[in-house]
Design a protein around this nucleic acid. Structure first.
Length: 406
DNA sequence: CGTCCACAGGAATGACGGGCGG
DNA sequence: CCGCCCGTCATTCCTGTGGACG
């Protein structure tokens, strides 16, 4: 009897037979060691080190595909610098880390920078210019040496333009007592070409390129983390290699490799297995795709969901925005929802494209016009399943399925 | 070689919700 | 509490455009 209760308690407390520390496999975990990135850590640290002496470091622009360790390296260096500053008791040395995918307006970016530095700012209501002024005054009056990391900076520029970037890079001209340097991180190499030349030259004073990992390097990374994350001996042979090679095939994305491994562990745990096997890893790979899409899709605004639903109904492919819009309108009608304009839908398609849920490309059909070809990034059936979690859409999907069955 | 399709995507504008300063 | 200003989402109106067709 006691044993049963003890078991339940053990489970409730998150005690696991598989994991020692699951966090070590989370994508935002900053490990003590980043295998195969030592030279980049050194490089970035050297570039930023003038800040510790109160001088202005160069602005840096970092490129590299997703999961090549850009963010991890920058955050690692940040962490170490902060620890050092704290130990020595320097309080004018500040970092701000902004992920522009989350903070995707000028206001939110400035707000995040402000709150990282300790400025009190309302989360809406002020003008961007006012925010900018407050920030500048705060930094200047405290003689701060600030390093601002703008992660996924291409998102910000695509959405609101390079105006904020221009102003941030020029903020030093207005400061008399302080120094601000910018670290831009992007995984879109082409994005740099679209920048205003002035911003480009100022932001990219130094450019650092991160190459993708190969399968062997990914395996090293996984091994490193697996020691922290898993209990001893629960990983069967080949699991790490499987995850590494699967991720290597997708442009050497380390985040993906880590997700795979963690998920394989979770599946094993859920099934009550005592070890993580290749079977679990393979399952993880299949389910992960679905899961990733789920997370994005679930939090989408209603009309974006409807749009995805339309595309899914069209078997995931529309040869023109017109035909997609027609389907969308039909669905709106049956649901009794006021449809958005085609103009707006066009913007929504672009947003979904940026989120990676679908792919659109402009095609010219000459005599037959110029339009956008839209295709779903995931299996339509999966999308339908995920969308069904929205009750209103769920009803619709059910009714279509019923009438569709002959 | 010009036309003209079927849109893309820019600009102006408005409704709405929220903070600010008085 | 009020009037003001702002960001966000959406609409309306608009100009721009690559290339197959005639």
């Amino acid at each position: 009897m006691e044993d049963v209760v003890a078991e339940v308690i053990k489970k409730a407390l998150g005690e696991s037979s598989i994991f020692r520390n699951r966090e070590a496999l989370a994508s935002d975990y900053v490990p003590d060691k980043l295998p195969h990135r030592e030279e980049y850590i050194r490089r970035i640290a050297e570039l930023l080190s003038p800040a510790l002496r109160g001088e202005k470091p160069s602005n840096i622009l970092i490129y590299g595909l997703t999961g090549t360790g850009k963010t991890a390296v920058v955050r690692y260096v940040m962490k170490r610098f902060e620890e050092h500053a704290e130990k020595v008791g320097i309080d004018v040395f500040k970092f701000s880390y902004v992920n522009c995918r989350n903070e995707d307006t000028n206001y939110r970016v400035l707000f995040k920078i402000g709150s990282d530095l300790g400025v009190k700012i309302p989360f809406t209501g002020l003008s961007v210019a006012e925010l900018h002024n407050r920030l500048r005054e705060y930094i200047d009056s405290r003689k701060l040496s600030v390093t601002i990391v703008l992660d996924e900076i291409d998102f910000l520029v695509k959405k609101v333009g390079d105006d904020l970037l221009y102003r941030l890079t020029r903020i030093n001209d207005e400061l008399t007592q302080s120094k601000v340097s910018i670290v831009g991180v992007t995984n879109d190499v082409k994005f740099v070409e679209t920048l205003d030349p002035r911003v480009r030259s100022s932001l990219g004073e130094v450019e650092v390129v991160f190459p993708p990992y190969d399968a062997l390097q990914l395996a090293d990374i996984l091994r490193e983390r697996a020691v922290l994350a898993f209990k001893e001996g629960v990983l069967e042979d080949g699991v790490i290699e499987y995850c590494a090679s699967a991720a290597a095939r997708e442009h050497g994305d380390a985040r993906r490799a880590l997700d795979l491994l963690r998920f394989a562990g979770e599946i094993a745990e859920r099934e009550g297995a005592s070890r993580v096997s290749l079977v679990h890893a393979k399952k993880a790979r299949e389910e992960l795709e679905v899961n990733a899409a789920m997370e994005v899709v679930r939090t989408l605004p209603y009309h974006s969901k409807l749009l995805l639903l339309s595309l899914a109904v069209m078997k995931g492919f529309a040869e023109s925005t017109g035909s997609l819009y027609l389907t969308y309108r039909r669905i709106c009608e049956t649901l009794g929802v006021e449809p958005l304009t085609q103009r707006r839908v066009s913007d929504l398609i672009n947003e979904l494209d940026m989120l990676g849920v679908l792919t659109s490309r402009v095609v010219n059909k000459g005599r037959y016009g110029k339009t956008k070809e839209v295709s779903l990034g995931v299996d339509p059936a999966t999308v339908l399943k995920v969308l069904s979690s929205d009750t209103r859409i769920g009803e619709y999907v059910k009714s279509v399925k019923v009438s569709g069955d002959r």
